[in-house]
């Protein structure tokens, strides 16, 4: 069954690639480059090295903002889930932030912080913190109260309660929140860079202005590979650092 769905997946990609190839050849390089062209462009772009350097540089800055979002979002979300008062205080503003368009915040943050690294880190933070926070929040609210009660009757309280009961129960949610946040962090980073035309996002935007579809698609492909790999790695880390994470995911009936 698993082998079959894998084969079907390959077939699916095959169909899309063939369709794209035919459409690309019919429409021409001005509108849609066929995958064969894009692939060879991707290889030459990788060989040239600039795109890769820009990507590494951009994503390094992205990680800074993302780390900040985790550092603030995870504890705050957990506290919101456990303490009703903090929830009431923070929740309306978080709901507001999550629906706010990050793109619309860019010009405002530019006024505050300029167009440099600080602005991009702030945008990544704003774009991802809501998701990290809300996932931790739902995790913390869903914690089986019986676990907490059991811990209490063994007089486990305060920090020990967090470390021994709440954190293990929360862990799957924190990992999921981090993965979700990372996707949004990458989105926000690319968006911010496209806005001020620097880094990898700037490269994408500039290529588009040159009306060269082939290289543009190659850059998008590289970004796709990076983003898929990054979230997969994060899940691996999640599985490796806590065996019960995977176990719990398979537990459901």
């Amino acid at each position: 069954m698993r082998g079959r769905s894998f084969a079907l997946g390959i077939a699916g990609f095959g169909i899309i690639l063939v369709g794209w190839e035919i459409a690309g050849r019919m429409l021409g390089d001005m509108l849609l480059s066929p995958p064969s062209t894009v692939l060879s462009l991707l290889i030459s772009i990788l060989a040239e090295g600039r795109a890769l350097r820009e990507l590494v540089n951009s994503m390094g800055q992205m990680l800074l903002g993302f780390a900040l979002a985790c550092l603030i979002g995870m504890p705050l979300g957990t506290m919101m889930g456990r303490v009703r008062f903090i929830d009431a205080l923070v929740h309306p503003w978080v709901s507001m932030l999550v629906v706010t368009s990050v793109a619309a915040l860019v010009p405002i943050v530019i006024l505050l912080l300029g167009t440099g690294v600080a602005m991009r880190v702030a945008i990544v933070f704003l774009g991802s913190v809501g998701y990290v926070l809300l996932t931790a929040y739902h995790g913390a609210r869903g914690i089986d109260a019986r676990l907490v009660d059991a811990a209490r009757s063994f007089s486990i309280a305060g920090v020990a309660l967090y470390r021994k009961v709440l954190l293990p129960a929360l862990y799957p949610y924190l990992v999921t929140g981090a993965r979700l946040g990372l996707i949004h962090a990458i989105r926000a980073m690319i968006m911010a860079e496209m806005f001020v035309i620097t880094g990898y996002g700037g490269l994408i935007f500039q290529t588009g202005l040159d009306l060269s579809v082939g290289p543009l698609l190659a850059y998008l492909l590289l970004l796709m590979i990076f983003s898929t790999t990054a979230t997969a790695i994060l899940q691996r880390i999640g599985n490796a650092t806590a065996r019960w994470y995977e176990a719990r995911q398979d537990l459901g009936d």
């Binding site: 990458i186 989105r187 690319i190 968006m191 994408i204 579809v213 970004l223 796709m224 983003s227 979230t231």
Partner: peptide, 13 residues
Amino acid sequence: AVPSIAFVPFIMI
């Protein structure tokens, strides 16, 4: 996996 905003140049074309 591709940020949808990255399609902006493509949409422009």
